[in-house]
Nucleic acid binder design. Sequence first.
DNA 1: CCCTTTTTAATTGTATTATAAATACTATTG
DNA 2: CAATAGTATTTATAATACAATTAAAAAGGG
Lengths: 239, 239
Amino acid sequence: MESSHRNLTQQVVHELGRKIMEGSYKVGDSLPSEADLCTQFDISRTATREAVKMLTAKGLISSRPRQGIKVVDSKHWNLFDVDVLNWILLGKPDLYLLRHFLQLRLGIEPEAAYLAAQYAQEDELTAIENALARMKDATNGQDDTHEADIEFHQSVLSASNNPFFIQLKNFITTALKVNIRFTNRMIPVTVAEYQAHVDIFELIKNKKPQAAFDAAMITQRATLAIVNEQISVLENKAL
Amino acid sequence: MESSHRNLTQQVVHELGRKIMEGSYKVGDSLPSEADLCTQFDISRTATREAVKMLTAKGLISSRPRQGIKVVDSKHWNLFDVDVLNWILLGKPDLYLLRHFLQLRLGIEPEAAYLAAQYAQEDELTAIENALARMKDATNGQDDTHEADIEFHQSVLSASNNPFFIQLKNFITTALKVNIRFTNRMIPVTVAEYQAHVDIFELIKNKKPQAAFDAAMITQRATLAIVNEQISVLENKAL
DNA sequence: CCCTTTTTAATTGTATTATAAATACTATTG
DNA sequence: CAATAGTATTTATAATACAATTAAAAAGGG
């Protein structure tokens, strides 16, 4: 059990949040009443209610007298919340979800590179460089390669010096983890991919915003094209 | 009082959230203890604790025994939460904040237009067209013009058919409202701006993703350039 | 005197019970 | 049948008690 060290409220938040995101409770469905949740989890009403309030704050449910606790429409879900993203990650692999992640990465990351080229401080450039170094000499396990990859993307976002982009580190990290599921885990980051990262870094370092933007954009459009291709193959088979 | 129709817990959430976002409680500061909050707001511990849990869920505070309730580092704040965005909006006008909003809009909106050109359904195109119509014949109040403008941007995000972009409607709406504060409220949307919106719509309708992307990008880079200019004028004066 | 350990006390975490408020549903009445 | 009033269910709030955590103080040992 991973959540045993957390307090009761947070365990219930995690459990219910996960179930909502995986679809065990669908939009419009009622969750068990407070009283039922108390007996199901064998906890007090205090803990139950606090868990419900936390999920309400994350936009997943609503709770009103006589109406009960209901899953609200997914357009209200705080999809950029770190917990919500982790619950998504626990769900089934889904090619459409991967596409949605890639589509937004395509919006965020090239522009983050643009901003990094404008505003990155010395230490932030160093952080990007360190991530690249980790990627290069990750001759040991493959997980390290992917972790270093994540670190690279995070450090670019940090270098944008924009709090909104920085908050999106959670999103990008989850997107990368979803991606890793689909590319074979055993295959580390390729040399070509590594080189593309280096190129973007050089453009950031040399303060070439537009070029950095374009380089990031090209790489990501290529990745998205592959997924789009996979989806259309899948959809043609279904006919 | 705007919040008088809400229940006690949510009033306290709003009050504390607003104070944290405006800087009355700074990062690392301790909020009053549960007991103090109870007396300050004249409510029970139940309501207090539920409010604290909701703010914890939004990433603003942490609450641990003996340590108390503290404002956590702003990188943990859920800046895309609709409440958090509204609390930001209640704060002082800030040119740097406006720039941060514009920088992310630049990432999101051109790509949303790209996706809309690919995936928009008939009814979603109609929604965009309706917003444009509202913009055009808003000869009455100026607020309507701005509301129609917001509606346009929202309907493009909806047409992207990507849940992440759809969730960002809150963000874009707040960004536009922040913008309206800086451009004189009395000045309605100009004819040139209206025409730019129409052009983007036509490109979406005719399924020209790249052209729609470029058109949106050009408009927004121009807006951002103006703000950057204002900031550099301000910073030169400060010397 | 400094370092480690133990104790203490302050604060949040959980449980329990009671009552209030809101509202979907039912029954009544004209 | 429609409008109204009543009822019952569910969440909202309150009050109190005790448990768990942990920062800080006190005690102990070298």
